[in-house]
Amino acid sequence: MSKGKSMTEEIIQNLREALIKHECTLKKASFDKCSVSYMCESKLKVINFDKIPKEYSKEKHLPCLPASNDALYISKDGSWYFIEFKNGSIDRADLFRKIYDSIIMLLELGIIPDFDFARKNISYILVYNSDKYPKIQKSESREENFSYFMRLAKTEEKLFEVEKLEKYLLKETHTYSKELFNTKFIIPMESIEGMAVTR
């Protein structure tokens, strides 16, 4: 490690050397081909992690492509975030495989040193479309009441058991609706980066 540099600073430099060509906006990484729509409008810069499996498989001479999360974001304070966008149905096993495979690719590409780094530094955010994933029986008045109380509480609902991976493979896990993702993640990060905040 170079004198005067933290491990995180050096890892970020390595990340940029290996993956910078896949940098894009968070909006672009959130694009859903099926519905031809975006799940957020943010111009935060992320790594489009969906582009990594093809190059990784070619380098390692693998017969098949690993699964991957949609985006990797590294904040100014050195915190890492894997972000997965789901605009439709959600399969828990598929989510877990994407998390495992994404971390393995970071390890084998030499971007992170070990699993302990992931446990201490990488958080996971699943962003889902609450309109397509109803949590209660469909009813206009029930939906209105549910949305009202969720807005009052301003809390996330833990879904799909991704929290089981906390302290095992990941530092933290979050499951946010599109609206909560904007409030809890995009607005704070854009503010820290000095960007015009997406509302």
Rank of each mutant, 00 (worst) to 15 (best):
A93Y: 07
Y124P: 00
E55P: 01
Y100V: 14
F49S: 10
L126R: 06
K51F: 06
R142W: 14
E108H: 08
K45F: 05
K132F: 05
R151K: 12
Y100N: 07
K98G: 08
S123M: 06
I186A: 04
I136H: 14
E193R: 15
K164T: 11
D114T: 04
S102D: 13
N48W: 06
S35D: 10
N87R: 05
L180M: 12
E10V: 08
L109M: 14
P113N: 08
F149K: 03
L95V: 05
K154V: 03
Y38N: 12
L159G: 00
K132V: 03
K135L: 14
S139I: 09
I186P: 00
I12L: 11
R142K: 15
R16H: 14
K171V: 01
T198Y: 02
Y133T: 09
L165W: 02
R97Y: 02
D94S: 13
D77T: 15
A18P: 00
I122P: 00
R199P: 09
Y128W: 08
E10I: 04
P63Q: 04
P113E: 07
A67G: 06
I187N: 03
S139A: 15
V197A: 15
K120Q: 13
L95G: 04
C64L: 07
C24N: 05
L26H: 00
K21V: 13
S68P: 10
D70E: 15
K158W: 09
E163V: 06
H174W: 03
L126E: 03
E17D: 10
S191W: 04
K76W: 02
M105T: 06
P63V: 08
I187L: 08
S89Q: 11
E190V: 10
K28L: 14
E156M: 04
S75H: 13
S42L: 10
D116A: 08
S42N: 11
A196I: 15
K158Y: 10
R97G: 03
Y100K: 10
G110R: 04
K138R: 14
R92L: 13
P188R: 14
T198A: 11
S37P: 04
K21L: 11
N145R: 15
K164M: 11
L19Y: 07
F185P: 02
L126P: 02
I99A: 01
L44W: 02
E143T: 08
S102Y: 05
F185I: 07
E9I: 00
S79M: 13
E161H: 13
K45S: 05
K58S: 09
G4E: 13
A93F: 05
K164D: 14
M105Q: 11
A93S: 13
A118G: 05
M7Q: 09
M105F: 03
R142Q: 12
A67K: 15
D114Y: 02
Q13C: 06
L126A: 08
I136S: 15
I187F: 01
S30P: 06
T173I: 03
K98Y: 03
I186G: 02
F49P: 05
S35N: 11
